[in-house]
Design a protein around this nucleic acid. Sequence first.
RNA 1: GGAGAAAUGGCAGAGCGGUCGAAUGCGGCAGUCUUGAAAACUGUUGAAGGUAACACUUCCGGGGGUUCGAAUCCCUCUUUCUCCGCCA
Length: 424
Amino acid sequence: MLQLNYIRENKEDVLKRLAIKNFKDAETIINKVIDLDTNRRAVQKQTDDVKAEANALAKQIGELMKSGKKEEAESIKAKTADLKGKEKTFDDDLKTIEQEIHALLVLIPNLPHISVPTGKTPEDNLNIYEHGTIPTLHDGAIPHWELAAKYDLIDFELGVKLTGAGFPVYKGKGARLQRALQNFFLDKATAMGYMEVQPPIMVNEDSGFGTGQLPDKEGQMYHCTVDNLYLIPTAEVPITNIYRDVILKESDLPIMNCGYTPCFRREAGSYGKDVRGLNRLHQFDKVEIVQIAHPDKSYGILENMREYVASLLKDLELPFRTLKLCGGDMSFASALTYDMEVYSTAQKRWLEVSSVSNFESFQTNRLKCRFKGADGKTVLAHSLNGSALAFPRILASILENNQTPEGIKIPKALVPYAGFEMIS
RNA sequence: GGAGAAAUGGCAGAGCGGUCGAAUGCGGCAGUCUUGAAAACUGUUGAAGGUAACACUUCCGGGGGUUCGAAUCCCUCUUUCUCCGCCA
């Protein structure tokens, strides 16, 4: 959520940057917000004045009662009746205006960073870095879903029986590889200085709002209506919400957390080759890294996070590229996002395995996550997060890129965790 | 799930219809003293809106109500604690 003050004072800049995100009706909505805000302050002034008057009278009555001047007190009481009605009207007006402003603010996406390339589709993303060589596979190389069946690593049909499509069952070495990835990623993150947390995987409405999933992305989350809880789509939600309604000390920053959780996504509207095998699941596992940072440092930290994720992919010996997302392909809440994509040789396509973003104060404004600066003022912190990493597509590309006629070779870094070097 | 008790500032903890944004202690910050530190002493120390700055307004778990006036009374929800039940 953008800050009202910022919109008021930097209207032109806001409009310019919203255009990069291809946000329609920007001018109409922004103008409306500014008008409502002007109105809000006027009504608030009226409300406050009436309340001040009523407070003063109430005080007088108190003093008169104490000194036994009952009649005088009664005559003042009569005056307050009128104020009471006014107070109620103004209060209601104010509430309505505030709701209207909030309803509009929630529709406005975050402003992209000045370096974000313009563009509308993934084709407009900027490829800023490539690493590794795409392996040449032997004749008869097959995609991971066939490898999974051949070596009995993942049973998609069994998942359908138990739950439905998109809920695979990992078996034997497949399950062990999942566990290896979890420990490998968590160990790496901890060594980088991230503190591991194990949060709940269901969250309440406030948490869903805090990181921006609610209200607009409601349909993407599994909702347990009986208890009004949501299954998390990413550990970003519970971990970032740790810092909801918190005023940090400047010396606490940056806060670095990591956590492993299963993630649940309804993925309504997905179909075809996108959802084949491990490409897109309803339940998957991920280690997430989250930082709460000083606004002056957040872009430096974003680069560190990007490099950290790249180092994981290098450790796993996977060919990958890094994209700087264009305005049109960025998420609602992000100010700058890097996507990391691994090349899946058997599918002959790039698979997104990580997304690293700086949200600046967009989330923290909703979360009310602030810190006290040197001058004693409270300032919104910046929040950042990244996948480090999501398991399914990593597993898919390891299986596909490392297949040989003899079996599948496990990357060296993962061998101590997996406990085996080959799947054959 | 049943019965009872409670929820106040960073923490502990008073206040139970007006003078309360809230005593006191601890913690934090600044200063005095000191070569420096500790101790002691002095001062200061919640958040939001609003203003050029004041003023002013709101917030004592959330929501609603009674009253001229609510941290204090009533209703409701949530959470915590104790006892019972169930249980990985």
